[in-house]
Structures are given as C-alpha cells and as structure tokens.
Simulated assay, not measured.
Amino acid sequence: MQPIDIESGAELALGGIEATTEPKRAEPWMRPIEILAAGLLVVMICMVLANVFFRYVLAKPLIWGDEVASISFIWMAMLGAALAVDRHEHMRLTVVPPLLPEKLARIVEVAGQVMVCILLLRLLPVAVEYAYEERYVTSPALGLPMSWRASAIPVGSG
C-alpha cells in the first residue's frame, strides 16, 4: 500500500469516491439554508430529549413534542438534500465513472445532473399540489395545517 500525501490533495483510491481534500462548500447564497438546517437539527434534538425527560422522568409526556420533532425532521431532511445537491455530494453511482475515459466520465456526470434537475422539475408541481391539499388537514396536538409539514417537499425540491 502506498503512503498518501495529504498535503498535495492526492485522492484515496477507494472506488474513486473518497478524497483527502477539504469538503466542498455550499454556494454563498445557500448559507442561510445551512444555518436553518442546523437550527432545525438543534430544535429536533432538544425536542426529542425533552420528550424523553418529560415522559420517563416526570411521567407527563409533551403531547405536541412529537409533532414539533417530526416537522423539524422533514424540513431538515429536505433542506439537507438541497444542500447536498448544491455541493455535488448527493447520493449517486460513483463506481462506474472512474472506470470510463475522462471525457466520457464527465459526460456521464453532466447527464446525471441533468436527470436530477429534470426529476426535481417534474416533481415540483406535484409537491406544490400536495402541500396545497394538506392545508385542510390539521395536526392533532398543535392544530397546525399539515401544509406546514408538506411544504418542505416543494421548498427542498425548488
């Protein structure tokens, strides 16, 4: 096994997906989304811990806590997926392109990005319609329209 020169940015040859270089940064206009997703993670963790404490220590569960945690989770997941797409770190097939010639590998990568874009554009009107229809349903504990939860899908897709 060859030693890896980390300072030169040499790539680790594990299927061509891992590298010793710095992780990619999101575009500057995505910074508020990063902060929002991190804040939602903190809210979700605090809410779950509070639920555990109130339920098992005080024997008085927070009825609305599960709803807050689940709404935070779906928003965090959709915003995180948008960040992953922006950083080109979303889940994709990374075994085949390194085996192809460089020019063909680049074409395959661009074609994959175009397909993701087409899929998201195709799903966007359906997700908006779903969020719109969910406004008639309310959450049992908070009484919020479920469109708050469902609107995470078109926002993340957009």
Rank of each mutant, 00 (worst) to 15 (best):
C117V: 14
A82G: 08
V95R: 10
S70H: 06
G15C: 03
L58R: 04
D86H: 03
P23D: 05
P125Y: 12
V43K: 00
C46P: 11
R92I: 07
V48E: 07
A84R: 08
R122L: 08
M44N: 04
H88W: 12
W64D: 05
N51S: 09
S8G: 06
V68C: 01
P3T: 06
S8W: 00
G80C: 12
V68S: 00
L104W: 12
L119M: 06
E129F: 11
M47G: 12
W75V: 11
A84F: 14
E7C: 01
L62Q: 01
V108D: 06
P3F: 12
M115E: 13
E89K: 12
R31C: 07
E22A: 09
M44W: 08
A37L: 05
I17D: 11
A38S: 06
V114C: 05
R92S: 07
G39Y: 02
E27K: 12
A26K: 13
A77Q: 12
M78R: 05
A69T: 10
V96S: 02
A77E: 14
V108C: 05
K103Y: 15
I6S: 01
I35T: 08
F73G: 14
A10S: 05
E7I: 00
M30P: 00
A50C: 09
A82N: 04
M30G: 00
E133P: 08
G15D: 00
L79S: 06
M44F: 10
C117F: 15
L123S: 05
Y132M: 09
V114N: 04
A37D: 01
